[in-house]
């Protein structure tokens, strides 16, 4: 493992943050099927078949000296090497990862090298586990879920450390695909919060509608995501993040009347292609970013201070 390996630039900051505190040993599979150099290719094939795995490391006194992949087995079939010792046909010069390394190193290793698995070793260079992309995905999903739980528990409370002058309301909502029943929960709560603060009905309506449009967008068009409300004395910030599929052409999505809604979504009264344009029109500040297969982030800010410039109604 080269020590120069750094997290790749393309790796989104959010994912890096998520991986932040995790180490490779936290995510690796510890139950490893390894063979010694004298086992045959057929032995490895049997291990792979019985345990549904696609790569078996070859060890010598717990040190990794090679790896047999499904590709090697297929090759051995073709060449009639199945009775040969693995030492004759294994892939050598295998890259290993150290269990103490941060998870981001494993993630960049997968994007830099064509391998689908890496053996993991301890400080004495002894095999202790295997890591695959599946391990990493599962760990990230668990970590995301854990962080969301923590945010949901903390959210909605006024932090005692900061006075109500600076911090008024904060909450994260988890939103599932096609869960129309839950649509409107965040906007109803936002409305209540703003009413309790005596904000003008016009501004409350703008904020509630923008929030509702973003909730419905996650429900109708994404695989699910989160919506975060943050209200302080000057403004409402609504952030909608989803897990994909991403918007191929943002300009098109921002065009009034453009919609990818299905007939079913339309039968619910949605899908007029006005969601994003409406949200932008209602917001004082608006930003959207999207990546195919990565997800979409929309940020809408509504100023609560009536002295500030309001968006032109006829815009």
């Amino acid at each position: 493992m080269s020590p120069a390996l750094q997290p790749t630039e393309e790796m989104s900051l959010r994912i890096q943050e998520l991986a932040g505190n995790l180490k490779i040993r936290d995510v690796m599979t510890r139950k490893v099927f390894a063979v010694t150099r004298h086992c045959t290719m057929r032995d490895v094939q049997t291990i792979m078949k019985n345990n549904a795995i696609s790569g078996v490391p070859v060890v010598d006194d717990r040190h990794v000296i090679g790896l047999i992949s499904v590709h090697d087995i297929m090759n051995a079939y073709e060449q009639e090497w199945m009775a040969d010792a693995v030492a004759d046909h294994m892939t050598t010069g295998v890259r290993t990862l150290a269990e103490e390394q941060p998870l981001s190193i494993a993630m960049s290793a997968f994007s830099k090298f064509p391998y689908r698995r890496f053996p993991v070793v301890n400080r004495n260079n002894e095999l202790t586990g295997m890591v695959t992309l599946r391990n990493i995905n599962m760990a990230l999903i668990q970590e995301l879920s854990r962080q969301l739980d923590a945010m949901e528990t903390e959210g909605g409370r006024i932090s005692p450390a900061t006075s109500s002058e600076t911090f008024i309301f904060y909450r994260v909502y988890r939103i599932a695909r096609y869960d129309f029943e839950a649509g409107g929960k965040a906007s109803a709560e936002l409305r209540e919060q703003l009413q309790a603060r005596g904000i003008s009905p016009k501004i409350i309506r703008r904020a509630a509608v923008a929030c509702y449009e973003l909730e419905i967008n996650i429900i109708a068009h994404s695989f699910g995501g989160t919506l975060t409300l943050y209200v302080d004395k000057d403004r409402v910030r609504i952030t909608a993040n989803d897990f994909g599929p991403g918007i191929p052409d943002i300009e098109e999505a921002m065009t009034e009347g453009f919609s990818t809604a299905t007939d079913w979504i339309r039968s619910q009264g949605f899908g007029a292609g006005m969601g994003l344009p409406n949200t932008k029109r209602l917001s004082d500040e608006f930003a959207i970013q999207s990546g195919i297969d990565m997800g979409t982030m929309v940020k809408a800010i509504i100023h609560l201070n009536p002295q500030e410039k309001q968006p032109d109604e006829n815009e």
Partner: peptide, 17 residues
């Protein structure tokens, strides 16, 4: 005034007060 029968009509009504 609407002929939509989904829950969302009520939510929407709430959103616009």
């Amino acid at each position: 005034i609407t002929s939509l029968l989904s829950d969302q009509v009520l939510r929407t009504a709430d959103v616009i007060g």
